[in-house]
């Protein structure tokens, strides 16, 4: 036994040294999660408008066009669970908060990261926001190691690049991520696939818990005289045409019945004709031109600005 232990130790030492080196250097890399938290915590005292949601909001709402000080706390594939729990956690530290814009898309009510291909994002929230989704595997290497969080192969590529990688190049201190106006990739085929991907994320069994989370968030906000505004962001026609109209109607009905009891306003921009081909970078994401237009619309229609 002693021989095995001694040899295992000798065998493991170079591996351990290598991994500690990798972990230390990966720790220093900023990503959208660490950067957003850092910027958010620096601005807590002055935030008046908080924007929550997924990628449609990350790339679609630029708070610099608000007449109030806003922060875009959304992130790619961020679910209602994280919207709710992140907001609740920081609510006491945002004394000037007046509005919270909550994005509810076609598929939001049925989505939890853990069910789908983006389950790895749960571990980013665990490592960078100290927030653990209850169903997450406790003993998962992605919870404790940056190498496994980024995936070992990608970590290796970062090592080969001397850890000189920029994962936040599009992100701005307001939490908004800019996509240049020259990018347009919308088409029928990609639109169809995009809708299918979103429909695959939708799990009927998740609807109740997501509804519960949003209702709780609204109650907490209203108790503090903060106005919640529910939005469904615009999508391009190549996305909208493939939507299952029955499911969409169910979603609207759910939103309407939920929020009418809380006297909460719902702003549906899903098929808004003000947003044209040039405003989108793909089927369901706005580019920087569209983001400016959408942010001004939100400022006018929800925040009461000019």
């Amino acid at each position: 036994m002693k021989k095995l232990l001694a040899r295992s130790l000798i065998f493991l030492i170079p591996l351990l040294v290598f991994f500690i080196y990798l972990e230390v250097n990966l720790y220093k890399i900023q990503n959208s999660y660490s950067y957003k938290r850092q910027c958010f915590e620096q601005q807590l005292d002055s935030i008046e408008v908080l924007v929550l949601g997924s990628s449609q909001v990350v790339y679609g709402v630029n708070p610099t066009f608000f007449s109030l000080h806003g922060y875009n706390l959304s992130n790619v594939s961020q679910t209602l669970y994280y919207d709710t729990h992140l907001t609740k956690r920081y609510l006491n530290r945002m004394p000037r908060l007046k509005y919270v814009i909550i994005n509810i898309s076609y598929f939001s009510f049925g989505e939890q990261l853990i069910d789908g291909r983006e389950a790895w994002r749960d571990y980013y929230y665990s490592q960078y926001w100290d927030m653990n989704f209850p169903e997450m595997e406790y003993l998962d290497s992605k919870r404790f190691s940056k190498t496994f969080l980024y995936t070992p192969l990608r970590s290796l590529s970062y090592l080969l690049d001397g850890f000189q990688v920029n994962l936040i190049k599009n992100y701005e201190p307001s939490g908004y991520a800019r996509i240049e106006t020259t990018e347009h990739t919308q088409s029928d085929s990609t639109g169809y696939l995009r809708v299918r991907t979103h429909e695959d994320c939708f799990q009927e069994r998740r609807v109740e818990e997501n509804q519960r989370d949003v209702e709780e968030l609204i109650r907490v906000l209203q108790a503090r005289n903060i106005t919640p505004g529910i939005i469904t962001p615009p999508v391009y026609a190549t996305y909208a045409k493939f939507i299952n109209s029955k499911k969409m109607q169910q979603n609207y009905d759910r939103i309407q019945s939920m929020f009418s009891s809380y006297n909460c306003k719902y702003f549906n921009y899903f098929r808004d004709s003000r947003f044209t081909f040039d405003d989108f970078c793909d089927n369901d994401h706005l580019n920087s031109t569209g983001a400016e237009k959408f942010s001004r619309v939100l400022n006018r229609e929800i925040l009461g600005g000019q």
Partner: peptide, 9 residues
């Protein structure tokens, strides 16, 4: 195993 493996449980 570490670098080419898929660790998605």
């Amino acid at each position: 195993i570490i670098f080419f493996g898929v660790f998605e449980n």
